[in-house]
C-alpha cells in the first residue's frame, strides 16, 4: 500500500493554491464555476442555512465538513434545486448564470452534479438504460435534432467508464439502486458522475455507510475522475474520506454557516481537536 506523506501534500497544495491565486489576479475569476453568496435556505419554514459563501472552480477539490445537522446536506440539495428546500436570501451563480432560476434538470444539463447521500431506488430501470436516457436528454437539449447516442457507441463508452472505476460490467444491467448495498449505491453514484461528466460535482456524504474497503474503492473511483475540468465539493462528516481524497480547500460548517476555511491542514486540525474549538465562530465570514 502506498503511504501518503501529508507534509509533502501540504507543500504541493500550497503551491497549487498560490498558482491559482496568481491566475485569478491576472485573469479575473474566470474559473469560478459555482459561486454561492450569502445563501439562506429554509426547510418547512425552519432556517437551516444562514448566509453561506463559497466559490468552487474547475480543477479544485473542496471538502465541506461539519457536525450532523450543521446544514451540509441542505446546501447540497439546495444547490441541486430540491423543491423542499426554499432559498430565502442570497444568490448562486453557475458559469455566470443564475442557478436558482433553473429547474433541477436544467442545472444537471448545464453541468452540475449531485452524488446523493441516500440515492433512491427506481425498480425496473437498469442502470445502463437510465444512463443512456440521461445522456440522450442532454444531447437533445443541446441539439433538438439529435437522434441519441447509438447503442453500440454508448456501450463502449459505458464500459470504458466502468473500467475506469474497476466495476464489473454486469453491474450496469441491475435495476437502479434496487437492492444495492451501501457500497454499491455509492459506486453507482460515482459511475453516474463518470458518465455524465459534469463541470462541478457535489458529493454528499459519499463516505457514510461504507466500510473501509468500500470507502477505499469509491474514493479511488472519485480520484480517477478528478482532474483539471472537474470541480468537486466533497461533503463529509468524518475526516477519514480525506485520507483518500485530497482536498485543496477545507471548509467547516457550523449551524448553517461556513465558519472556517483553509487548506488540508484544517481537516487534520479538526481531527485532533474536534469541532468544539470552533464554537463561538458563528457569524464570522467564511471565505472560499
Amino acid at each position: 500500500m502506498r503511504v501518503f506523506d501529508s507534509r509533502l501534500w501540504l507543500c504541493y497544495n500550497a503551491a497549487a493554491r498560490w498558482a491559482m491565486e496568481r491566475q485569478r489576479k491576472r485573469y479575473g475569476d474566470v474559473h469560478a464555476m459555482l459561486q454561492v453568496r450569502n445563501l439562506h435556505v429554509s426547510v418547512d419554514g425552519q432556517p437551516i442555512l444562514k448566509g453561506v459563501n463559497l466559490v468552487v472552480r474547475q480543477g479544485e477539490i473542496h471538502a465541506l465538513m461539519g457536525p450532523n445537522g450543521s446544514g451540509k446536506s441542505t446546501l447540497a440539495k439546495a444547490l441541486m434545486g430540491h423543491p423542499g428546500y426554499e432559498v430565502t436570501a442570497g444568490e448562486v451563480t453557475f458559469k455566470g448564470q443564475n442557478l436558482l432560476e433553473m429547474a433541477p434538470d436544467e442545472r444537471s444539463r448545464r453541468g452540475l452534479f449531485l452524488a446523493f447521500q441516500y440515492p433512491v431506488a427506481i425498480p425496473g430501470v437498469s442502470l445502463a438504460n437510465f444512463l443512456r436516457t440521461a445522456i440522450n436528454v442532454r444531447r437533445k437539449a443541446a441539439d433538438p435534432d439529435d437522434k441519441g447516442l447509438p447503442i453500440p457507441e454508448f456501450r463502449r463508452f459505458l464500459k470504458a467508464k466502468m473500467d475506469l472505476l474497476q466495476m464489473d460490467h454486469r453491474f450496469a444491467g441491475r435495476y437502479l439502486n434496487d437492492g444495492f448495498s451501501g457500497g454499491e449505491k455509492k459506486r453507482a453514484e460515482a459511475l453516474q458522475l463518470a458518465v455524465l461528466e459534469p463541470d462541478i460535482a457535489v458529493l454528499d456524504e459519499t463516505d457514510s455507510g461504507l466500510d473501509i474497503d468500500a470507502l477505499r474503492v469509491v474514493s479511488e473511483g472519485v480520484n480517477a475522475l478528478a482532474g483539471p475540468d472537474l470541480g468537486m465539493l466533497v461533503i463529509t462528516h468524518y475526516q477519514r474520506i480525506l485520507n483518500y481524497i485530497k482536498p485543496h480547500f477545507v471548509h467547516i460548517m457550523l449551524d448553517g454557516e461556513i465558519v472556517e476555511s483553509g487548506g488540508p491542514e484544517l481537516a487534520l486540525k479538526l481531527e485532533e481537536r474536534g469541532y468544539t474549538w470552533l464554537e463561538g465562530k458563528q457569524n464570522g465570514r467564511g471565505s472560499g
Binding site: 434545486g81 423543491p83 442545472r107
Partner: peptide, 30 residues
C-alpha cells in the same frame, strides 16, 4: 411516484415528464 424519485431523476437531466415515464416504465418492466 415519490418526490424523491422525481428529484433524483431530474438531477440527472430528465425533465419531469421523462422522469415520470421512466418510473412507470420501470414499474411495468417485469
Amino acid at each position: 411516484i415519490g418526490d424523491e424519485q422525481l428529484f433524483y431523476l431530474m438531477s440527472r437531466g430528465l425533465d419531469e415528464e421523462q422522469a415520470r415515464s421512466m418510473v412507470v416504465g420501470g414499474f411495468i418492466e417485469p
